[in-house]
Write a protein that binds this DNA or RNA. Structure first.
Lengths: 215, 215
DNA sequence: TCAAAAGTGTTGACTCTACACCCATGT
DNA sequence: ACATGGGTGTAGAGTCAACACTTTTGA
C-alpha cells in the first residue's frame, strides 16, 4: 500500500484587514499545469508528524509563527494523502521566494486556481481560525509581540468580518485575563496613546467571545 | 516513502451511564503481544478516506451508527500512520466477535493495555464527544430513535460526568428546537409517563449548553 | 390517596449590549 | 483649544441556575 503522504501547512496572517494565507506555485504531476498550492513536504518513514509540521513551519515562516495545530487529513487526491496543519503568524514576509500571501476570500471565490483540493482545506482552516478566536487568545499570534487592544480588535474584525464595540471588547479581554500590560504605550497615534500588551495565544477565553452580534 | 496507513474508528456509546468505546483484541507486529486496539483497516491506493471510514463503521456497528467525524491523524507509530474517526451509536451490540465495549474511564486509567497510542486517540475522542454535545444535538445519536428527555439528559450526565437540573435541561433543549415530539409516550415508567421525541443529531444548539455548572 | 417522575413558573444573580462620558495626547 | 482615539461607567434587556409548584400516571 505505497500511498505517498504529504504534510501541508495553512499559514495564516492578517494584513490589510483581511485574513490571508501563504501559497506557492507548483508544477508537475497532480498540480494541473501551474497552480497555487499550500506549502508542504513529503513524509518519510522516520519522520514524526508533529516534528515534520514544525520543520515545515520554520522553513516557510523563517522561524516565526506559533500555534501550530492539526486541521484535517484528506485524500487520496491525485494518489496522495495530505495531512493539513494550521499556523498563525504576525504578517511576516515569506522566507521562500515564490511564495505569496493571498486573501482567503478571493481564493474561496475561485478555488479552481488551486491545486488538488487545497480550496477545501483552506475553507476548513478559515473556519477553524474563526472558532479558535472565540475560545482562546490565538489572535495575539496574529499581532506583533506587543500590541494595542485596538489592533487585537481589528484582527477579530478581519477574521470574523464583523464590527465589534471597542469599549466592550476591551473590557471583555481584560476580564478574561489575557492582556498582560507591558507598561509601554504605542507612539505615532493620534489621540490618547494606547497601552501596549502581551498575551499568551493559548490562554482560554471563558466565557467565549460570541461572534453573532453584528452591529 | 511506503508508509502504511490505517483508518481507525472510535465507536462510542453510553451504557450503564458510562461512556464506552468498542475495542478488539489484536496480535502481531506493533501490537506488543495481545493488546486491545481500536477497530481499523488499511487504506488502499484506490480507497477514499471518508468511504473507507463509512465501510469500517458499517462493518463494526452492523449498519447502525451515524455522525461519523474525522478526529485526528497520528504517527508514524510502529511505522504506521493512523487516521482516526469518531462515531456515535445507540448501545448496539457488536457485530464482530471478539469486539467488546470498554468504559473510557477505565481505559484511560491504564492506557498500557492498549496497542500503539490508541489511549491518546481515545482521550481525544472523549473530549471531542464532550464538546460536540455542547454545540449540537449529537447526544440523540447515543439514544434510541425515540427517546425521553430524561434519557437524553442521562446521556449528557454520563458523558460529562456532572448532574444537570432536569427542569432547566428540558426547557433548554425545547427552546433550542431539537426536540421533535413523536406524539407517543413511554410506558413502563413510574410516575407521569414522559413524552417521546425524535431529534436530528446534527442540529446545532445555540446558545451552547454550558458544562461548567455542576451542582 | 400517595408516591414518583414529568414538566412549568418564578425569582434573584449575573452577563451583555449600547451608548454616554471622561482621559490623554498631537496639532 | 480642539480633534481624535483610548478607556471607563452605567442602565436596560436578556439569560441562567435554583427551586417551588402543578400535572399525570401506577400502585
Amino acid at each position: 500500500m505505497p500511498i505517498p503522504i504529504t504534510v501541508d501547512l495553512v499559514l495564516a496572517t492578517v494584513a490589510d484587514n483581511r485574513l490571508q494565507v501563504l501559497l506557492g506555485r507548483r508544477a508537475g504531476r497532480g498540480f494541473g499545469g501551474r497552480r497555487w498550492a499550500l506549502p508542504g513536504r513529503f513524509l518519510g518513514p522516520d519522520d514524526e508528524l508533529a516534528t515534520t509540521a514544525r520543520e515545515l513551519l520554520a522553513d516557510v515562516a523563517g522561524g516565526r509563527g506559533g500555534q501550530l495545530e492539526q486541521l484535517a487529513t484528506v485524500g487520496p487526491v491525485g494518489g496522495v494523502v495530505s495531512i493539513a496543519y494550521v499556523a498563525l503568524v504576525a504578517g511576516a514576509p515569506s522566507s521562500r521566494t515564490g511564495d505569496r500571501w493571498h486573501e482567503v476570500e478571493e481564493i474561496l471565490a475561485d478555488p479552481a486556481r488551486l491545486a488538488l483540493d487545497h480550496g477545501r482545506i483552506i475553507a476548513a482552516a478559515a473556519e477553524r481560525v474563526r472558532t479558535r478566536l472565540e475560545h482562546t487568545a490565538a489572535a495575539a499570534a496574529l499581532c506583533p509581540p506587543a500590541f494595542t487592544v485596538t489592533r487585537l480588535r481589528e484582527v477579530y474584525e478581519a477574521v470574523w468580518g464583523v464590527r465589534l464595540d471597542p469599549a466592550n471588547f476591551h473590557r471583555k479581554l481584560a476580564a478574561a485575563g489575557v492582556l498582560e500590560p507591558t507598561g509601554d504605550r504605542a507612539e505615532g497615534h493620534t489621540g490618547r496613546p494606547p497601552a501596549l500588551y502581551r498575551a499568551d495565544p493559548s490562554t482560554p477565553i471563558h466565557p467565549a467571545i460570541v461572534r453573532d452580534n453584528l452591529r
